[in-house]
Design a protein around this nucleic acid. Structure first.
Length: 811
RNA sequence: GCCCGGGUGGCGGAAUGGUAUACGCGGAGGACUUAAAAUCCUCUGCCGCAGGGCUUGUGGGUCCGAGUCCCACCCCGGGCACCA
């Protein structure tokens, strides 16, 4: 008997599959198209780590399962190779990003191939290649034409280490998502995508798609819809007005002062009336200097300055109230100004307490008891209005809109979501296809001139001047205006990496026909019809508000521009869990990155695949440890060693063992359902139980039991399943077998184990016919000594009988 | 602070309100071997010689019966956060 040699058989089958193009799917003629997408990796220099292998294996198992269910599964793979991450590494080692990236991709490809997945390599895309980024630039132009891309001067987040601006989503608690440096605020002219226009759609459509609930929740929170009112406050002896946004218009009578953000646009207009202008100006300058992190530091005591000489009028009761500026009010949200209601807002309360401003309670929880306690904390709960004139006694929710109406305010919806800042002052990305002409202004590059090639330059390091390295390449910058043909200059920023990845699932289809297809042409539209939206998308939860939000936006925009006819990119999305090491996310800086290569070499891909999936629920992730990997290796070895006795069974005259047959059907059911729900760990456990059972019968069972095992095993351990299948002299490839079905009738066993309880405690278990009646069961139970012992001398009060399960005697 | 997860043997983890600890790792004993590795067999939640009792973060509750449902709390992981 030959020993199980995974390296040998895996190499053999990889060779055969490659030759036969096992993954091949006819994109044009597929009858049951199934687009099985996994998040493509950025090719880091460290290579693939087990976390990647974990994610890809989970997705590949699903794809293989669907394929055996007779779907035409398209499972492409590519590389998200542009971007700061790749570039930072290239800078560190002093190698040009293009060279470094190509090296990394080669390594990744090699590692990915070791996995034995169904990847459709013919469709591989690389985002940093001109044929690809031509379309990234095309997309930019379409958004520009549709008014969804605009350039504006705005306060933006700047990462001093990456020397570029960042999108809102890429700033994590005031720090750069990539390098963890503290970001600073800069006022710069930048390109934005108007994602906010889609805020409502992005939110509403979540109801229509089958996504992991926690991913949907994260998107909802990020979009951050809040309903409130916009209310005007007049400034005393001035024509000026200050608008505020509030979600609590019901507390308007309790608004005892106004607060403007230091950046508020009306402040300069009030200058002549402000008697302490120096102090005010000083405060504004101080606030400007603070980083986002400092300003949002919650433990920090609130600060502010009163605008002396200025009073506002509370429109509810016409009382004069003071106006302050404070940096706890953000310029970027709502109207950049608030009405402060210290009795019903904790932040306002802190501020009011510090500066001795009046606190007036207007919502009372124990109405109509007029006594409201002195507030140690702002009262945020429900209640009825007090101290609110004719609104006294009104329920607060109702009062919200009554008071809004009363003061002529309007109902408003605000979103946390900001426009997507896509300019990057970096080298390694697609140049933004825009030309500036003194005569014609901002001119988009004509589509026929795409791609705007990224010049191959020596000096690719970020400059830190607020300009991209491309700005110092005259041959790139200087160009002709496409309109007037006069001298003009190119935009020198590149676009955000997340733009590259926002449309890559279309890229795999564009690659079909070697990039000759394109949005808008009918051949491509037909492909889209067949393959989109994506049927199943599996990826990391960390992209819930980055990639997954951007890609939904881009899809919606393409739909509205008429290039596609569906609204959402992914019908089904499942987030996999994070694979950690020693409880921490794997990262090179922490030095806890686990390279899978040595495990592939030692145990083979089948063992690594299965072990990763066996660690725990795929959706939960887990902590990597190789402690139990031998368990899977032993399991595969036991299956391997089991092959020979059965190959001698040509004629099977043995009677089907009904217990085994029931188990076979149960196992098919369990594995099928678990695969559908990505519960790979329990599917594998079921396969083990099944094998443990049949291996006890090795000389009397029929070939069918082994076939079932191999077919169910195939998605998890494709190589060994194929090898044993061929040794069984079964027909064709195991991977082309139809997924087996089960019969609910055969799952039922004739005899079951009935649990006998007395007062809810298990006292015995007896084997009985499955169809036993309550009366029979009770009689049988009362005959058991083990039961009699516990009810002796007691009255039987009740008997609870759960068919097929248990009998509980209450005495 | 808010929003999601989660807390079960020595470890990873199983359990439509119905035998808690499946499956695997580890451990103990045994077989094979000159020996070891590999492999195979048996045992393995805790307490107790045993009958039996106890056990799913803590404390209450509902129920014939609770890891699972309800209430309160503690701890761990992740996300968001002066968003008015």
């Amino acid at each position: 008997m030959q020993k199980y040699n995974p390296q040998k058989i895996e190499a053999k089958w990889k060779r055969i599959w490659k030759k036969a193009k096992q993954w091949k799917v006819d994109l044009k003629r597929a009858k049951k198209p199934y687009y099985n997408l996994m998040m493509f990796p950025y090719p880091s220099a460290e290579g693939l780590h087990v976390g990647n292998v974990y994610a890809f294996t989970g997705s590949d198992i699903y794809g293989r399962f669907r394929r055996m269910q007779q779907n035409d599964v398209f499972e492409p793979m590519g590389f998200d190779s542009f971007g700061i991450h790749s570039e930072n590494y290239a800078i560190k080692v002093g190698v040009h990003p293009k060279i470094q990236t190509n090296k990394n991709i080669q390594n990744f490809r090699k590692q990915l191939k070791a996995l034995g997945a169904l990847f459709a390599w013919d469709h591989e895309v690389i985002t940093s290649e001109p044929e690809y980024y031509k379309w990234t630039q095309w997309l930019f132009l379409q958004l520009y034409k549709a008014g969804l891309a605009y350039r504006a001067k705005a306060p933006v987040d700047w990462c001093p280490s990456c020397k570029t601006v960042l999108a809102d989503e890429q700033v994590i608690q005031g720090r750069c998502e990539r390098c963890d440096s503290e970001v600073v605020q800069k006022e710069l002219e930048q390109w934005f995508f108007r994602i906010t226009k889609y805020a409502e759609k992005l939110l509403k459509n979540l109801e229509t798609i089958d996504w992991s609930e926690r991913t949907k929740i994260a998107q909802r929170n990020w979009i951050g819809r809040s309903e409130g009112a916009q209310i005007e406050f007049k400034i005393q002896s001035s024509k000026l007005k200050i608008e505020v946004f509030t979600t609590r218009p019901d507390t308007l009578f309790g608004a005892t002062y106004l607060v403007l953000s230091p950046e508020h646009s009306q402040i300069p207009n009030l200058k002549s009336q402000i008697t302490n202008w120096n102090e005010v100006e000083n405060y504004i300058a101080q606030a400007k200097k603070k980083s986002e992190l400092e300003r949002t530091e919650l433990t920090k005591e609130k600060t502010g300055v009163e605008l002396k000489g200025i009073k506002a009028i509370n429109p509810a009761n016409n009382e004069e109230i003071p106006v302050w500026i404070a940096d706890y009010v953000l310029a970027s949200y709502g109207t950049g100004a608030i009405m402060a209601v210290p009795a019903h807002d904790q932040r306002d309360l802190e501020f009011a307490t510090k500066y001795n401003l009046p606190i007036k309670q207007v919502v009372c929880g124990n109405y109509p008891e007029p006594v409201c306690p002195i507030l140690a904390e702002a009262y945020l709960g429900p209640g009825h209005l007090v101290g609110s004139d004719k609104f006294d006694g009104m329920e607060f929710e109702k009062a919200k809109w009554e008071i809004t109406k009363f003061v002529g305010g309007k109902k408003t919806i605000n979103y946390h979501l900001r426009d997507w800042l896509i300019s990057r002052q970096r080298y390694w990305g697609p140049p933004i296809p825009i030309i500036y002409c003194d005569k014609c202004g901002t001119v988009p590059v004509p589509e026929k001139d795409l791609p705007v090639l990224l010049p191959n330059v020596k000096e690719f390091r970020p400059t830190g001047t607020g300009k991209s390295p491309l700005a110092s390449v005259p041959s790139f910058v200087n160009t002709k205006c496409p309109q007037c043909k006069g001298p003009a200059e190119r935009e020198t920023d590149v676009s955000d990496t997340f733009l590259d990845s926002s449309w890559y699932f279309f890229g795999y289809l564009l690659k079909f026909g070697n990039w000759k297809l394109g949005f808008g042409n009918s051949a491509f539209s037909q492909l889209l019809k067949k393959w989109c939206p994506v049927d199943m998308y599996i990826g990391g939860q960390e992209h819930a508000v980055l990639h997954l939000l951007y890609t939904r936006f881009i899809t919606m925009a393409l739909k509205d521009m008429g290039f596609i006819d569906f609204k959402e990119p992914f019908k089904k999305f499942r987030a996999h869990g994070l694979l950690t090491k020693d409880g921490a996310k794997m990262s090179k800086s922490k030095g806890n990155v686990v390279n899978p290569d040595e495990y592939f070499a030692k145990y083979g891909a089948d063992t690594v695949r299965m072990y990763l999936m066996f660690l725990g629920p795929f959706s939960e992730g887990g902590d990597w440890s190789d402690k139990g990997i031998v368990g899977i290796y032993r399991f595969l070895n036991r299956i391997w060693n089991f092959q020979f006795p059965i190959s001698n069974f040509q004629s099977n005259s043995n009677v089907p063992n009904s217990k085994l047959e029931s188990l076979r059907h149960k196992t098919i059911k369990k594995v099928t359902e678990d695969l559908e729900n990505l519960r790979y760990n329990t599917a594998i456990a079921a396969l083990m139980e099944y094998f443990n059972e049949i291996s006890n019968f090795q000389f009397i069972i029929s070939k069918q039991y082994i076939e079932t095992l191999l077919v169910l095993l195939a998605p998890f351990a494709p190589h060994i399943a194929e090898e044993l299948w061929s040794q069984l002299r079964a027909k064709g490839s195991v991977h082309n077998q139809p997924w087996p079905s089960y019969s609910p009738k055969l799952i039922k066993e004739e005899k079951i184990r009935l649990v006998l309880q007395v007062n809810g405690r298990v006292r015995d278990v007896i084997e009985v016919p499955a169809q036993i009646s309550e009366g029979e069961a009770k009689e049988l139970a009362l005959r058991q000594k083990s039961i009699q012992k516990w009810i002796e001398g007691k009255q039987i009060q009740r008997v609870i009988f759960i068919p097929q399960k248990l009998l509980n005697i209450v005495a």
